[in-house]
Design a protein around this nucleic acid. Structure first.
Length: 638
RNA sequence: GCCGAUGUAGCUCAACGGUAGAGCACGGCUUUCGUAAAGCCGGGGUUGAGGGUUCAAAUCCCUCCAUCGGCUCCA
């Protein structure tokens, strides 16, 4: 007999060799029915694993994150069997669970098409209906290597396994796959699934390796959860900034310039509002602003190190037999401005901002709306300071950054620290000092951070800021990068207190990262329902009929004088149609005016997403609206 | 850049070898209306570009371009 301790602290005495499923059965048959795996002393195992010692046991169901992951992984196996039965030439590579589902990488020369998903699913349903048990078989590494001789992918998987015991799982008609497990007890337990897409994926993510086919699926314990998930995808599609950008006439793209955004008048209003706000905050934090040329002599980029480290992404041009580069970064230009005169330690820290338009040639396959473009405006700044000032400057940037994010309604953010990459310039010692300074600032602010080894910029380590939007998707926005190399390369100096010439430290930083991308993120975050202060059109006046067009004009004049962006809908549509149209354009605020309002100098205020409407004097509405705009409030209630 | 898919009117889509259509949007007219779309009429397309097959191509084939989903990369 052995004793098993359950999560609630109670113990059960069971026979040696009892399995978790039998234990679940004893606790509650309903639990046994829901069980997908078990945690034995914290390790997740199959429900059929015999228990031979005194252990802690927890039954894992699909409600548990780990249980869901196991279920999805098992679903991947079922899909693999289905694919192999349809395409016997399929070679299986690797099939893990991922967020919301799973994928399986396969090597098959014949492309799988979306049209094939139906029959894959059908085959999977057959396998599920058969409800065959997943059976684990263990053998030594040597036996396994012999068994899989000739299968380069599975042999490779064994090479990556850290255990000397290699396991296989089988289910169904002789289908067997090398797998660490654990798995659900049988194929009837892989949940509610759907094949989502198929895409190419390099073996090991290595572009020099063969391109495999990656078939993605999603799987959920309950049918309702699957439906909800598909529903969420539909919702996300409606928020897609590319769709909303076209619909709301904010920006466009054209084949004439792939990756180059055309910002329309309404988009420019959003842009300029952000810039105005951004300037105000930077002014308050002691920044100056400069503007440097788009095109600079190629030699400059040799000097800066970009030629050696970034050439593949740069655009070039030539004139009068002189080669020029179109700037991919603003820093060299900033250095040239710095060099135009002498500097003293008394000026430090010197914070110099630049809304710089940069061009980077991104691979054609990665361009994506405003999120990934080839031309964008960075909200860049370079801080020149002494080594002693680094930490406090980094702290200042962190505070500025968080303040700006909160203004836009982003409360959920996290920080990552990236260290020295393989391809880098500068000595190890310098890298250590720089990395230490960043860590010091983060620890001083008691900010938790994740470390990304080897992912820093070629000239220095960096901190990246990530925010989560309302759909919990993470976006990288800001960055702080320390740079000891570029000041050196450009021969930047300052006169220190002791009257000697020294080299300043340069801190590169961006808060929003790219204006283009940030506007895209805002559009999706707000689902196009921009707060009043950012709305291209803040108020629309809707006369009931032609008879109150004049009064509508009077109201509009007052609003315009108060600085509000507003228009009148003078079309001869009925009021319902005018309202529907304004809602479609995501107007934050509509003022319905008819004879009643005209007589009493009032407006009937209809706010986006808020009922009931309210009739108030024009002045009252005006004051409320102005207050909301000044405070940049995201909600608007009268 | 690589793999796969997709390009038809401003937008969303139909037609899938035999005269390119619809809804919305746009223009004109009627209507003057009280809270999420009133009616009629009209203009608008070398079907992404180029080549090929065919009596005949939006439709089949090839090349290129762009877009979408991934991989890789990144703000």
């Amino acid at each position: 007999m052995v004793n098993v301790t359950l999560p609630d602290g109670s113990t059960l005495s069971v026979g040696n060799g009892t399995t978790p499923i039998q234990i679940a059965e004893r606790i509650d048959p309903a639990l046994a029915k829901a069980a997908v795996a078990a945690r034995v002393n914290g390790k997740v195992v199959d429900l059929s694993t015999p228990i031979v010692n005194n252990v802690d046991v927890q039954i894992v169901t699909a409600n548990d994150d780990k249980g869901l992951e196991i279920m999805r992984h098992s679903c991947a196996h079922v899909m693999a069997e289905a694919i192999c039965s349809i395409w016997p030439a399929t070679k299986l590579v690797y099939g893990p669970a991922v967020e919301d589902g799973f994928y399986y990488d396969i090597d098959l020369d014949e492309p799988i098409r979306p049209d094939d998903f139906g029959r894959i699913e059908q085959k999977m349903q057959e396998i599920v209906a058969a409800d065959r048990p997943f059976i684990r078989k263990e053998m030594s590494k040597i036996q396994a290597l012999a068994k899989l001789a000739g299968d380069r992918y599975k042999l490779d998987n064994i090479d990556h396994a850290d255990s000397d015991i290699i396991s296989f799982y089988s289910h169904g008609d002789g289908f067997e796959d090398l797998c660490r497990g654990p798995h659900v007890p049988s194929t009837g337990r892989v949940g509610n699934f759907k094949i989502m897409s198929v895409a190419g994926a390099y073996w090991h993510g290595d572009p020099t390796q063969k391109m495999l086919q990656r078939v993605y699926g999603t799987a959920w314990a309950a049918k309702q959860e699957l439906d909800d998930y598909l529903q969420r995808l539909e919702e996300a599609k409606k928020r897609d900034h590319r769709v909303l950008g076209r619909h709301l006439d904010l920006f466009s793209f054209n084949e004439a310039g792939p990756g180059f955004a055309f910002i329309h008048p309404k988009g420019m209003i959003i842009w300029n509002e952000i810039v105005n706000y951004w300037r105000g905050v930077h002014n308050r934090y002691g920044y100056q602003e400069i503007k440097t040329p788009l095109i600079l002599n190629e030699q400059l980029w040799h000097k800066s190190g970009h030629w050696d480290n970034y050439k593949e992404n740069m655009y070039f041009t030539a004139f009068d037999n002189v080669s020029y580069a179109i700037k991919p970064m603003n820093c060299p230009g900033g250095c040239l401005v710095y060099k135009t005169r002498q500097h003293s330690y008394r000026e430090f820290p010197m914070r110099v901002a630049e809304l710089g338009l940069v061009h980077r040639h991104e691979a054609s396959g990665v361009i994506h709306g405003l999120f990934r473009v080839r031309q964008f405006t960075q909200d860049d700044a370079h801080i020149f300071c002494t080594p002693q000032q680094i930490e406090s400057e980094v702290i200042g940037v962190i505070e500025l950054t968080f303040e700006i994010y909160r203004t836009f309604g982003f409360e959920d953010f996290h920080v990552e620290l990236s260290t020295k990459p393989e391809k880098h310039i500068g000595s190890d010692q310098v890298w250590d000092i720089a990395t230490g300074a960043l860590k010091g600032a983060l620890e001083h602010k008691a900010i938790a951070y994740k470390i990304n080894e080897g992912e820093g910029a070629f000239y220095g380590p960096k901190i990246d800021f990530h925010i989560k939007d309302c759909l919990k998707r993470s976006w990288q926005l800001g960055t702080i990068q320390l740079d000891f190399s570029m000041p050196e390369r450009f021969g930047l100096t300052y006169t220190d207190r002791d009257n000697t010439e020294k080299t300043p430290v340069m801190i590169h930083r961006a808060v929003l990262g790219s204006f283009e991308r940030f506007i895209g993120i805002l559009i999706e975050h707000y689902a196009g329902n921009l707060p009043l202060w950012l709305s291209p059109e803040q108020v629309r006046i809707l006369p009931i009929s032609e008879k109150t067009n004049d009064y509508a004009g009077v109201v509009q004049t007052k609003l315009k004088q108060a600085g509000l962006r507003c228009s009148c809908d003078l079309s001869d549509e009925k009021i319902g149609a005018k309202i529907a149209r304004a809602h479609g354009e995501k107007l934050p605020c509509m003022l319905v005016v008819g004879p009643k309002e005209a007589q009493s100098n009032t407006v009937n205020v209809r706010l986006r997403g808020i009922q009931p409407n309210k009739t108030v004097p024009i002045e009252e509405f005006l004051e409320a609206a102005k207050r909301k705009i000044v405070n940049k409030e995201t909600d608007f209630v009268l």
